[in-house]
């Protein structure tokens, strides 16, 4: 019924698809998982213990917008792990541009829907885990922190309360 050439073409396409799908698998899962654990620990502290802590009495999920403070974007696998960790209590949204998170037409350019914008620094590959983070609510309410963490079993934990530092990225014109 089908010509041999057609079946051969179908087989080639299927093989190519399979090879591509296998090839797109993540080869750095362990590193991604470590980075995700660091970010989860930082975000948990900000949402629970910082001056930007969410009000647990609120029914609606408050969005927590997240952006990278480093030159590169945060890896997709890391983003997915973080989003899944906070689901369904907190709506974590990674953004490409900070304007995505802000209501710039409103006075003070607050974060949309009463949320917060978190800037997360690069997680060092080796040595002690020392990471910078900044939290933005409005133009005049931006705070910077320096976190020091260590792995404890399956999770990352803060060695000590974060040190407050001068915000650098999430201030001024975004």
């Amino acid at each position: 019924m089908f010509r041999r050439a057609t079946l051969r073409r179908a087989a080639v396409v299927i093989l190519l698809c399979g090879a591509l799908l296998v090839g797109c698998g993540d080869g750095n899962a362990s590193r991604d998982s470590d980075v995700a654990d660091v970010y989860i620990a930082v975000i948990e502290w900000v949402l629970a213990e910082s001056e930007f802590a969410l009000d647990p009495a609120l029914d609606e999920m408050t969005p927590g917008y997240v952006d990278s403070l480093g030159p590169d974007e945060i890896d997709l696998d890391v983003q997915v792990e973080v989003v899944r960790h906070f689901e369904p209590d907190v709506d974590i949204r990674f953004v490409d541009t900070r304007t995505e998170a802000l209501d710039e037409l409103d006075v003070g350019a607050p974060v949309r829907d009463g949320g917060i914008l978190l800037g997360l620094g690069v997680v060092p590959i080796e040595g002690p885990i020392d990471i910078r983070a900044e939290v933005y609510r409005t133009l005049d309410r931006v705070v910077g922190y320096r976190f020091r963490l260590v792995r404890s079993g399956q999770t990352m934990v803060l060695i000590e309360p974060p040190e407050r530092v001068e915000p650098e990225s999430l201030v001024g014109e975004l």
């Binding site: 179908a10 396409v13 299927i14 190519l16 698809c17 591509l20 799908l21 797109c24 974007e73 945060i74 890896d75 997709l76 983003q79 997915v80 989003v83 709506d91 974590i92 949204r93 990674f94 953004v95 490409d96």
Partner: peptide, 22 residues
């Protein structure tokens, strides 16, 4: 709606191309 588009774009391109190949 939760992940950044720049990070997701390579996957979207890949899957769009791969799934349309058939």
């Amino acid at each position: 709606f939760n992940v950044s588009l720049d990070a997701a774009r390579p996957r979207i391109v890949l899957y769009l191309a791969v799934t349309m190949a058939p």
